[in-house]
């Protein structure tokens, strides 16, 4: 059984549907990359799993099972118990994700004090340990500093330390390297990889960067217009994509046309106006997800794309 199982998750933003049935799963200890361009629903998926969507965004259907328990039906109080302790999250921009008026030590140790009843001194001590674990130099001194006194990479390390405080089984990292310099990006990715191994934690890495995916992921879920269009092992996917969108991404060529507006999605398959394989059926019928044996794709022609040498 998967650790985290998202089935047919639907989220609406008022009248606009932003997630139209997202399904993906995360196994213990693995790294799943959720890949997609901006607006494809990656962040909304992550926040829906965490249960921290801001209104007017609301979950309108589907379920999110963690160790077999549907989180969406839990009362808020119990849902809160899962947050941070079982599933934790790292955000894209660490500067705005950290509270500017509290020291990093306070923010890292906060959950330990509030939820585990540690004393101020114990929490601070633990915060220093966590900062050591995410390789922040001179942690003992820096624990008393404020977020703005850290560099971008160090700040992201602070928010990772904060997410790890309660030793979660799942870490969701929402574009954790997008706001950083290229050299620092690699360091943060390495760190996330190491931490995942050390703690046998499952990592859900949200990104729009194929390079990132290749570097750290075990499996990939590709999102397009609020759906997961392909899910596969990273080697399989790079060797032979089963969805035309993935194929286009891998070719690295610019995909013709623009990403669709969620307000006004194309009929049938949302990708059909930009698709080389589009046929009449694509314009009228939304494809269901096809099981391809250990991998899946939401395309009427998934089997054809899979064996098409031109798609590689």
């Amino acid at each position: 059984m998967s650790l985290l199982d998202v089935t047919d998750l639907r989220v609406a933003f008022g009248p606009t549907t932003v997630l139209s049935g997202v399904s993906l799963h995360l196994d213990p200890g693995e790294t799943l990359a959720v890949l997609g361009e901006s607006g494809s629903g990656k962040t909304v998926t992550a926040q829906a799993v965490m249960g921290i969507l801001d209104p007017p965004a609301v979950v309108v259907g589907g379920c999110v099972r963690y160790r077999g328990q549907d989180l969406l039906t839990l009362p808020e109080r119990e849902r809160r118990r899962i947050r941070g302790r079982e599933i934790a999250m790292v955000f894209q921009d660490a500067l705005s994700a950290l509270n500017p008026v509290f020291t990093v030590g306070y923010q890292i140790g906060e959950t330990l004090r509030i939820r585990d009843g540690l004393s101020r001194r114990e929490a601070l001590h633990r915060a220093v340990e966590l900062m050591d674990q995410v390789r922040i130099p001179a942690a003992r001194q820096r624990v008393h500093e404020y977020p703005h006194q850290f560099s971008g990479g160090m700040r992201q390390r602070v928010s990772i330390a904060m997410a790890l405080a309660l030793d979660p089984a799942v870490l969701i990292a929402d574009e954790p390297t997008t706001a950083l310099d290229v050299t620092v990006q690699a360091q943060i990715l390495d760190l996330l990889g190491e931490l995942r191994r050390e703690r046998t934690m499952a990592l859900m890495l949200i990104t729009h960067d194929l390079g990132v995916v290749a570097q750290v992921a075990d499996r990939i879920a590709v999102m397009y217009a609020g759906r997961v269009v392909e899910q596969a092992d990273v080697h399989q996917l790079f060797r032979a994509p089963a969805h035309p969108y993935t194929a286009a991404l891998l070719r690295g060529a610019a995909i013709s046309g623009t990403p669709p507006s969620l307000r006004d999605l194309p009929s049938g398959c949302a990708f059909h106006p930009r698709c080389r394989y589009a046929a009449a059926v694509c314009r009228t019928v939304a494809p269901s997800t096809v099981d391809l044996g250990g991998r899946s794709a939401a395309c009427h022609f998934a089997r054809e794309v899979l064996v098409d040498p031109a798609a590689r």
Partner: peptide, 9 residues
């Protein structure tokens, strides 16, 4: 940061 605080449980 308010979202982060909520994500911390």
């Amino acid at each position: 940061y308010a979202k982060t605080a909520r994500a911390k449980g």
